[in-house]
Nucleic acid binder design. Structure first.
Lengths: 338, 338
DNA sequence: TTGTATGCGTTATCAA
DNA sequence: TTGATAACGCATACAA
């Protein structure tokens, strides 16, 4: 069976032939470059528009080594955290004439490598890599493959002239949460930290511990539990915590999804939230205000992170040496769960 | 400032030079094409691998007119409905060596046109267009720009050899919901239909009406309200409905987000759900089981729709003439809200 | 201001 | 089984 033949786009050569001029004159005209008479330019532009000319960006990419394509690699675009970042990225990319490849890794290093490799073959101008699970050697290797890289939710030692890192100050966030609990007189605070290999989970756990110690309280490993970064993960972790039969009057969770799961387990086991157990989440996704009681959480503007990331990537691509490391401060939003 | 120089990838010519053979021999070897001796092939493959050769897919695209890139256009990737579809699309694309451009339209026809235009310039192999708001002439024009198109949530009359449509049977879904209410003895059923220009919203409204009429009930425009496809939209619509001071004992909502918003407005105004007012949503996004009471809704496997869409697109690209029109039947999942 | 030659990395085509 | 050459559509460098 014959494949459908899409309507063929005219090329520069087609326009040139129709206009009776050389291909280069048309090229200059459509690119608004100097070196073509004003009258000629207008004529060519009119003709090009009439013939429906659109530059072939992949051919242009081959010639200029600039493809106007960037990659966005996330663990899971279905997670609101990344979905909102992606939205921000795509917004400014679109405004600047770039297109964005979206790839999921499912938090798997092997898939992450495969994703980056496929992007490399596409000769993209840069990549935004979120919550990378790569080990340092692999990460450095991958970074060397791209002209520009923005790392979200991942730090990297050493200085790479082609990378910018954007991180949320998770440590601070966790501290804010713990201090809030402390201010309420709660001292038996559990921490539902995220996936063991997640950097931001580690930082949050660290902040949780440091805030506890700063208040003169001792740590108890029994009060900590890892979890998958979703509602079920939060449920499982909270259930495990509750089963240990310790006294717990507060839970700080790695993200809002997990916080909601934990909250429901508490409620289902007959505990009042926030009366008996207060709960604080992280990220402030829309669910936080949808759920009842509304979730007290650490707000960060995810769309803004996406926009920032894309802007930084563009500066890198244009060789502008932006700030190498950006730290976003979360803000505690007190709602009803704590 | 000088831009960072990414590590240069070796080209076919580089490998050829190193191997002391012609470029074409290397090309045949790496592409597993016949016409190269087995021993030679192994040597070349080893060398290519050692030198870290990766084909430049954009150059290949220029030569073959196949870029291995497809586009996915959605109103809002932040909406779980589209996020899950996107996940499915990206999954099979990745498995088949394709990369996916993600673009948001914000439900705006102008932006949708701009998005498709930018994809056209990239010379992609096909596009999956979700919930298109384009009018027929524009849509047909855009369809002619691509070798393959899959329309999700949009019908099109006439037959185009390069398009496949995938739709949820929204009419049936709405009927199932209304019949469920009727079976509970509820007869004062409101409909929170979605955006006025949304095709699926229209189909759902139609199904709602037809089920009511089939039951011998009369229609009342006062029982219908449009809404934005999110929680706030549902809140606003439900509030408007309630303000009309009609007796209402059930609400069917365009999607789960709106259903949850409506449910909360009902609860906040002191009405029991499902006691006084029962609620049914559509799509069965994760929120449906997170919210309390859990939402009775019309289930469709969104990831599956995405995978189906990408598979259909691939068949189209390969000229295989798949089924031109796919209809997905939703299934009523009875939970706690109705 | 305009045009010609050349190259980007790859595949298709034809010749050896 | 191999290799040389011409595209693909565009831009850069240089010549007229």
């Amino acid at each position: 069976m014959m494949a459908f033949q899409a309507r063929k786009r005219p090329t520069l050569a087609d326009i040139a032939r129709s206009a009776g001029v050389s291909l280069m004159t048309v090229s200059r005209a459509v690119n608004n470059k100097p070196g073509v008479g004003e009258e000629m330019r207008q004529n060519i532009l009119a003709l090009a528009s009439e013939m429906g000319y659109r530059p072939n960006q992949i051919a242009r990419g081959l010639a200029t080594n600039r493809t106007s394509m960037v990659g966005l690699v996330v663990p899971d675009n279905t997670n609101p955290f990344f979905a909102h970042i992606a939205r921000g990225v795509e917004q400014v990319a679109g405004e600047q004439g770039y297109n964005v490849f979206l790839l999921n890794t499912s938090e798997d290093a092997g898939r992450e490598l495969a994703a980056l490799d496929s992007l490399w073959q596409k000769d993209i101008d840069g990549v935004i890599l979120c919550s990378s699970r790569l080990d340092l050697p692999d990460l450095e290797e991958q970074i060397s493959h791209f002209p520009a890289v923005v790392l979200v939710n991942r730090e990297i030692s050493g200085s790479f002239s082609n990378v910018v890192t954007i991180n949320v100050d998770d440590r601070l966030g966790a501290q804010l949460a713990v201090r809030h609990f402390l201010g309420q007189g709660r001292q038996h605070i559990a921490c539902i930290s995220g996936p063991a290999h997640s950097l931001s989970a580690q930082r949050r756990l660290e902040g949780y511990r440091s805030a506890l110690q700063a208040a003169g309280l001792s740590l108890d490993a029994q009060l900590e539990a890892c979890c998958a970064p979703d509602t079920d993960g939060g449920r499982a972790a909270a259930a495990a915590l509750l089963q240990r039969r310790l006294y717990i009057d507060a839970m700080y969770a790695f993200n809002d999804l997990a916080a909601v799961g934990a909250m429901q387990v508490c409620q289902e086991s007959g505990r009042q939230v926030p009366g008996e157990i207060a709960i604080i989440g992280s990220d402030d996704i829309p669910l936080a205000t949808i759920i009842r009681p509304q979730l007290t959480t650490l707000h960060v503007d995810l769309g803004q992170i996406g926009r920032l990331a894309m802007h930084a990537l563009l500066e890198l691509i244009q060789g502008e040496a932006p700030q190498a490391s950006i730290l976003i401060e979360p803000e505690l939003i007190v709602r009803a769960s704590a």
